[in-house]
Design a protein around this nucleic acid. Structure first.
Length: 427
RNA sequence: GCGGGCGUCGCCAAGUGGUUAAGGCAGCGGCUUGUGGUGCCGCCAUCCGGGGGUUCGAAUCCCCUCGCUCGCCCCA
């Protein structure tokens, strides 16, 4: 098969699926506007170093999932695998933080070279927010609330919020060494992957899916016990905020994020209806990242939602009848036949569109029966028919397509009259 | 990178070694040179992802390959 086709993991979004995407996009814009977030758009391509430094060399994302290549100027470039590093880079490059803290949101395609599976593509889409320059525990809660409310506004149920605190870097370092000590004594009980990670990325062992490893880890020292008093108090404040907001959460001491920049609050929103890739939204605080990328030490918190996964959930909700999405249909379907009539139809279609109506103009020149059949299938409530007769008389025939054929409702009228009545939502 | 499942018309799908590859939907043409949804008639895969092999004979068996899909890993 040598037909041209898209690259693996790079999927087309066809017209049929767009109502779902557009619903999500419209909802998120409305929510963000109400939350006083401002949109930012950054390039898809960045210097590789941004991600290497921002996300962490040891992470899987940087280590084996990036689309990296040399451009014609021999610079190492990478298609962005996530949004946060780019947003921070842009904020620093344009000194946004000099104007005070920033409440930002973004959306767009991201790229990760992985084996595609349900809810995971190589080019995928994320929407995310970044609250830069906010250290207060309330900002953690607000970030989470914005995500939670967006998902609720979409009518999605069956979601749960998992919460953990990773503490500050010294908490994490302390925990890392206690955990490594503990694991080293039990190496032979670990699966091979996890054993490997003792030296590379021990915290990641915590969310291993290996059941044996999980059983063993039930006894392991917990991150939360290594937190300093200040970190612990901070986490308590975040939790009190969530309680006040009545956002239910589950503490998950095993929750660690795969990107190195996270500190303190880490969270995920998961669904049971997504198969293996259950995480819809993931995020947390990253107080060290901005400094890491060359800025002044600045606290920040943010999250990202995977839009493909959201679309999957919304499609399920739609199938279950929980969410209704109207199929888009034109207001008018314009049928015409004969040279003069066809030309008039072309002109009238434009006029009616300028009047704010959606009009589908049949351009086939086929028999009236064919055109009306298509008119019916288009879902339009009204057909406007212009034949030679109407063209001669300067009128159009308005037909109600939502009546039965036995009691046809037709009316001849002048185009100006129809134009006037187009302001009336009942036609 | 590693496993499992699958690959017949735009979509769904029958067919598992024997001469012309069912059917449904969609599409196109007609019945009805100007009237729809529901009727009727006709057209729509020399070909079964691609390549090689076995056989008198293969979509059906074998090998390779490509692709899709689910899972591992990882993440949104």
């Amino acid at each position: 098969m040598d037909k041209l086709q898209s690259l693996r993991g790079m999927v087309d979004l066809l017209p049929e699926q767009m109502p779902l995407w557009q619903r999500i996009e419209a909802t998120m814009r409305a929510q963000f506007e109400r939350a006083a977030l401002r949109e930012i758009r950054t390039p898809l391509l960045e210097v590789t170093e941004l991600f290497a430094r921002g996300i962490g060399e040891a992470t899987d994302v940087v280590g084996k999932e990036m689309y990296t290549f040399l451009d014609r100027g021999e610079r190492s470039c990478t298609l962005r695998p996530e949004g946060t590093a780019s947003v921070v880079r842009a904020a620093l490059q344009h000194s946004l933080l000099g104007q005070g803290p920033q409440r930002l949101w973004y959306t767009g395609p991201m790229f990760r070279y992985e084996r595609p599976q349900a809810g995971r593509q190589r080019q995928f889409h994320q929407v995310g927010i970044e609250l830069l320059g906010f250290a207060d525990p309330r900002s953690d809660a607000e970030a989470i609330a914005i995500a939670w409310d967006l998902l609720s506004a979409l009518g999605l149920g069956g979601l749960s919020l998992e919460l953990n605190s990773l503490g500050d870097p010294s908490d994490r370092a302390a925990y890392r060494s206690t955990l490594v000590d503990w694991l080293q004594l039990r190496q032979e009980q670990l699966d091979a992957d996890s054993r490997e990670r003792i030296s590379t990325n021990p915290l990641r062992i915590l969310d291993s899916k290996n059941t044996g490893t999980q059983a063993l880890l039930a006894e392991a020292p917990q991150l939360i016990d290594s937190l300093s008093d200040a970190s612990r108090e901070r986490f308590g404040a975040v939790r009190r905020c969530l309680d006040a907001l009545e956002i239910p959460y589950r503490l998950n001491p095993r929750l660690v994020r795969g990107l190195d920049y996270y500190t303190h609050t880490a969270f995920e929103i998961t669904s049971t209806q997504l198969g293996a890739q259950a995480t819809v939204c993931g995020g947390g605080r990253y107080d060290g990242l901005i400094e890491q990328l060359g800025g002044a030490s600045t606290a920040a918190v943010g999250w990202a939602i995977g839009l493909e996964r959201l679309v999957l959930l919304l499609a399920q909700a739609q199938a279950a009848g929980t969410v209704a999405l109207g199929a888009p249909a034109p207001d008018l379907y314009l049928v015409s036949r004969g040279e003069q009539a066809e030309c008039q139809a072309l002109v009238l279609a434009r006029q009616w569109r300028q009047a704010g109506r959606s009009v589908e103009l049949d351009l086939t020149g086929a028999a009236f029966a064919k055109q009306l059949k298509r008119a019916d299938r288009s879902g339009a409530p009204w057909a406007v028919v212009i034949g030679e007769e109407e063209a001669r008389q300067g009128v159009v025939l308005l037909k109600n397509l939502r009546r039965s054929a036995d009691s046809p409702e037709e009316e001849r009228l002048r185009p100006v009259e129809l134009l006037r009545r187009l302001g009336d939502p009942s036609i």
